[in-house]
Design a protein around this nucleic acid. Structure first.
Lengths: 256, 256
DNA sequence: CTTGCACCTGACGCTGCGTCAGGATGTACG
DNA sequence: CGTACATCCTGACGCAGCGTCAGGTGCAAG
């Protein structure tokens, strides 16, 4: 054997880095935060890692691979197996939540894609806008269900997914209408104008369609809106509300 | 109507924040990076957001909700619908990749949990260690397959998942053995000791089991290891190799 | 002795804001 | 008209996990 029996052989940062697939900078960082301090230093100050350090590092790498934050790893490395398991359970829950959020985003993009390809692969700016507004309203609905109705994120996703296609179509139309009204607001369109009349009529039609012409349901919706906690973000702004009201008055459009 | 016709009404930061469910600090930040600069300021320097700003903000919020980085949003807001779609496609790919990574981590934790509950819900330190070593080796295998064999991450996941239960069991035993050897190294156990002999025998048995006693397969495995690119991280360190070699020599354990 | 590589410390950069700090404004009420 | 009290302002540090210089030292080989 040409190699000496180097049982308590020590390694330099570079060697450790290569052997465990982390960077030198990472090792510096781990030492800086006190997570992995090499057990030795040469006289000239070079780091020397022993077998014990390598073991510790392997555990650290494993746990970071599971997405456990470094702070937690630091406390876990000296903890009992039970608390490690417990921490990993908590970690799992977090990972699941993050994964579900990603999944929801992916599905929204997919939905947008489907619409795009249904329209021949090309979208006009307006179509894109209204689709993005739909997404915005879904986000809003999600917030509403979790924060006001107290649903879990998963339940809210479910509820939103379970909306029937026609209702989703309605949502899309609402989003488009609101976007149009806000565009009109941005362009200083007068409520008495013809364009405002068209918007007010679309608004009335959507309200009728949404409530099925049922005054009681209309009242319910109003109550629903009134019941929102103060400061809770609305689907559309006060300015939109005011504009539509004025346009309806100006053009004597009865909404109910 | 008591409220005046405030068509080009402007809003303060706080109002905007409440209505769009972002924080005031976020609006400050968006202005700081030039993403959303309010179209007006009062004489005293207070921000005033108009309908146009609200529209822009809604789009920003929608896109951040899809995980698009702010820098990209900045360029997307003035881009054509086509390039927006294109960017969202790229965004989707990224999201999918992140989701898959999360999924893999979740599954690893689940596997660990299953082992734990199979052992009656309680794990000894050694069992936990060896399970974590298994994870480490899976990570290693993943790196090996993607970086050396050139597989995609998905293919690598597949390949690892497709390992038969017995092979997985073998992997676990290997991991446990390596961990034990490294522990022995950390404790300065002599290669001539009884404990080293036991380790060397376990090593020999695993090699035999892995190669099925076939010398050619043994040679293949050696070649596989020798064929690894220089500097590629190994499953175990040189010190382990040396230790086992010396122990086998000291106790005349023939391995092949 | 020089070359060249590996190592050292220190410090800023990145993402997307949260969270003070210290002070100026705005609005409602008496 | 003064006084609360909410809201607004700017500026700056903090966080997670390192990447990436910058400027200087150590070490083995030719």
């Amino acid at each position: 054997m040409t190699r000496s029996a180097d049982m308590n052989h020590t390694f330099t940062v570079g060697e450790i880095a290569r052997r465990t697939a982390v960077t030198v900078r990472t090792l510096h960082h781990y030492e800086h935060i006190g997570l992995l301090v090499p057990s030795e230093r040469t006289a000239s100050g070079h780091r020397r890692y022993g077998a014990r350090d390598v073991l510790r590092l392997r555990r650290i790498v494993t746990l970071t691979g599971l997405g456990v934050p470094l702070r937690e790893i630091a406390s876990l490395l000296d903890a009992s197996p039970q608390s490690v398991l417990e921490a990993l359970r908590a970690q799992r829950d977090e990972l699941v939540e993050r994964r579900d959020r990603l999944e929801a985003s992916i599905e929204r993009i997919d939905a947008l894609e489907r619409h795009a390809s249904a329209n021949g692969g090309a979208l006009t700016r307006g179509e894109l806008e209204s689709l993005m507004e739909t997404i915005a309203m879904e986000n809003w609905a999600h917030r509403y269900m979790t924060e006001v109705q107290g649903m879990t994120p998963a339940e809210a996703e479910e509820a939103i997914r379970n909306v029937s296609p026609e209702a989703a179509e309605g949502t899309r139309k609402w989003a488009a209408l609101i976007a149009d009204v806000e565009a009109a607001l941005a362009e200083d369109v007068a409520p008495s104008s013809e364009r405002a009349r068209a918007l007010a009529e679309r608004w009335r039609d959507l309200v009728q369609r949404f409530t099925g012409g049922d005054p009681q349901k209309h009242a319910e919706v109003k109550k629903f809106y009134a019941g929102l906690p103060a400061g809770f973000p609305r689907m559309y702004g006060e300015a939109v509300d005011t504009f539509i009201h004025e346009a309806q008055t100006a053009h004597r459009i009865v909404c109910e």
